[in-house]
Amino acid sequence: MSKNIIIKCEDLHHTYPSGVSALQGVDLAIAEREIVGVIGQNGSGKTTLVKHFNGLLKPTSGQVFVKGINTREAEIKEISRHAGYVFQNPNHQLFAGSVRKELEFGPANIGMSAEEIEERVRLAADFFGLEEFLDENPYRLSFPLRKTVGIASIYAMDPEIFILDEPTTGLDYTRARMVAALIKKLQDEGRTVLIVSHDMMLIAECCTRVIVLWNSRLIGDGTPREIFGNRELLEKTNLAPPQIFRMAEEIGLQHNGKTPLSVDEAVEAVERGERAG
C-alpha cells in the first residue's frame, strides 16, 4: 500500500521563550487517512507537538511539513486551510451572535465564495446535527453543544487534517461516544485525524495508530494494541490502558486472536468464547 505522507517532522525541537524545552528531536511521519492518538502525561509535549501542525508554533530547530508546506515559511492562515485545530474549550473561540455566523467565520477567512460558504455551513450543520440551532446564540447553548459547534466551525473550513485537543473533556458518556462516532465519520470522508487526549477509551476505539510522548521525546509509536500491550512503556509514562483492555488481558479474553480494545469487541469475544490459548 503506497502511503501519502501528509505531516512530516524532522528532528523537531521546540524551546519556549521561558527556556523550557518542550520537544527534543521528534521525527514523525503521518500518512493520509490515519487516525493518530497522541498520548502522554501533562507536560510531556503533546500539545506543543500538535501545535506545530497548523503553524501555531514554529520549530526552534528542525522542520515540519504539512501537505508539503514548510510551516516555517507559511502563515497560520495558509496552513489552517489544510490543518484544522479544534481547541479543548469551545468558549475560547465562540464569539458570533449565532451558530450560523460562527460556522461562516473560518470559511470566510480562508477566502471561500459566498456560495461555497453557504454549502459548507449546510454540510457542517448536517454532519454535526446542528440545523435546529443555526440561529441560536452559541453562548445560550449547553456546553456539549458548544463543543460540537467548536468542532463544526473547523469542519466548515473543510481541512484534510483535523487536530482535536481533548475532544471528550467535559462531556458525559453518551456525548463522548458521539464524538467517537464523529471521528469515525471524518475517517470515512478520507480525512486525517490527530487526537490529543487522556481518554484512553476514545483512543483505543478510534485510532489506527498511537504515539507516546514522554519528557519532550517520542518514545512509543504503534497500533493501539501494541502500545496498550506494552507494560514497560505504560509504566514508564504513567499511563493506563482502557479498563476493558486491562480486564481482557487479565482474563485472557481474545477477539480474532488479539486482546479486545473496545467494549463491543469484548462482548463479541465473550459471546464467541474466544480465549488466549
Binding site: 497548523n54 501555531l56 502563515e75 497560520i76 492562515k77 489552517s80 486551510r81 484544522g84 485545530y85 481547541f87 468558549n91 475560547h92 473561540q93 465562540l94 464569539f95 458570533a96 467565520f105 473560518g106 477567512n109 480562508i110 466551525s153 473547523i154 473550513m157
Partner: peptide, 21 residues
C-alpha cells in the same frame, strides 16, 4: 484558537473574535 480559524493577525476584523470570548 482564532488564528487557527484563519483570523487576521491584526486589524478591526479580528476585534470581536478576540474580545468576546
Amino acid at each position: 484558537a482564532q488564528r487557527s480559524r484563519a483570523m487576521q493577525a491584526s486589524g478591526f476584523s479580528a476585534l470581536l473574535p478576540s474580545i468576546i470570548p
